[in-house]
């Protein structure tokens, strides 16, 4: 498969766009949370400042090379993910079935963190990691059903083609599959690790869980991972349900740049909605989170799937 120049440029730019957007989004989120708290909040650029500060620090302790690898693993995993996400309707890597690959890839970065924290020997990290994996089990069930629904609905398993199929505003999957969209958004809340599903990093329970033994550059890497995964995961929702931000047709470079900005705006909207939920709810216990995910979201995801299957068969 020969790549065009645009694809090469996008392959280089995609991780950078995701990196910059991620930190900007988190900065905006901090500002919004502060406003709901009735505080003024840090500057929007605070996330960049924090990450650069952390990389300027020297690391005082590291437990083993596994920990080093773990943090690196998380960052590399999320960079790989960013290549699969169509930014502005133009995926770098696109093939039949890339949605499924992406869902697997999304799990790699948390696994990398689990690997790194597992080697530190801190019981808080161990509990945090086990909670994280349990939470993954919880939200992946409705999310997997939603993915199947999307594949059935658009009759394709390629993200590029899914975005292509939602060209017009009325073709957006959020309108044709509203129940699945709700289920996906609830799963997204757990995926992003926002309340009420932030059990893995709960400060008042496990002292920030996996991050507890990470400092300096390691913490910086985890922060980069978190910022980038925010964009990748919220962006995945945009691509699946909100048409992938393809507003300008024509395929020119200018249209692509415009589409990228539309995509970023939509992603930010999805993320801010999640931040709203985050700042008005407390945290569930682990068992309650499992019960929640395997109840309501799974149920409506299944209903959405059956509607999609039946309409495909021509019943409606």
């Amino acid at each position: 498969m020969a790549w065009s120049t645009t694809t090469w440029v996008m392959a280089a730019l995609a991780p950078i766009i995701v990196f910059l957007a991620g930190h900007l989004f988190l900065g905006i989120a901090r500002k919004i949370t502060a406003r709901i708290h009735r505080r003024r909040g840090p500057p929007v650029m605070q996330q960049f400042i924090d990450v650069f500060k952390l990389f300027g620090k020297r690391t005082s302790t590291t437990h083993s090379w596994v920990q080093d690898m773990g943090a690196l693993f998380a960052v590399i995993g999320v960079i790989a993910c960013s290549l699969f996400i169509p930014i502005g309707g133009d995926p770098v890597l696109s093939f039949q079935g890339d949605v499924i690959v992406l869902v697997y890839l999304l799990a790699i970065a948390p696994l990398g963190m689990a690997l790194g924290t597992g080697s530190t020997g801190n019981p808080n990290s161990a509990i945090g990691v086990s909670r994280g994996l349990m939470l993954m089990l919880a939200y992946e069930l409705p999310f997997a059903i939603v993915i199947v629904t999307i594949i059935v609905h658009f009759k394709t398993a390629s993200l590029g083609e899914i975005v292509e199929a939602q060209k017009g505003f009325l073709d957006w999957a959020i309108l044709s599959l509203p129940l699945s969209a709700i289920a996906a958004d609830l799963s997204l809340q757990g995926m992003l690790g926002e309340k009420p599903f932030d059990q893995p990093v709960a400060p008042s329970e496990v002292a920030s869980g996996p991050m507890v033994e990470f400092g300096g550059k390691y913490l910086g890497m985890l922060m980069i991972w978190h910022a980038m995964s925010v964009v990748v995961e919220a962006g995945l929702f945009v691509n699946l349900f909100l048409g992938g931000g393809v507003l300008f047709g024509g395929g020119t470079t200018l249209a692509l740049i415009g589409n990228i900005f539309v995509w970023l705006a939509l992603t930010l909207t999805v993320f801010i909605f999640s931040i709203f939920i985050n700042s008005v709810f407390g945290r569930f216990k682990m068992g309650q989170a499992l019960k929640f995910y395997w109840g309501f979201p799974t149920l409506i995801a299944l209903i959405g799937l059956s509607i999609a299957v039946l309409s495909n068969l021509g019943v409606f």
Binding site: I32, A34, R35, I36, H37, R38, R39, R40, G41, F276, S279, V280, F281
Partner: peptide, 14 residues
């Protein structure tokens, strides 16, 4: 609980 969002438009108290 989403009523808390109305503080977005108000003056912060810090």
């Amino acid at each position: 609980p989403f009523r808390a969002l109305r503080f977005l438009a108000r003056k912060p108290h810090t």
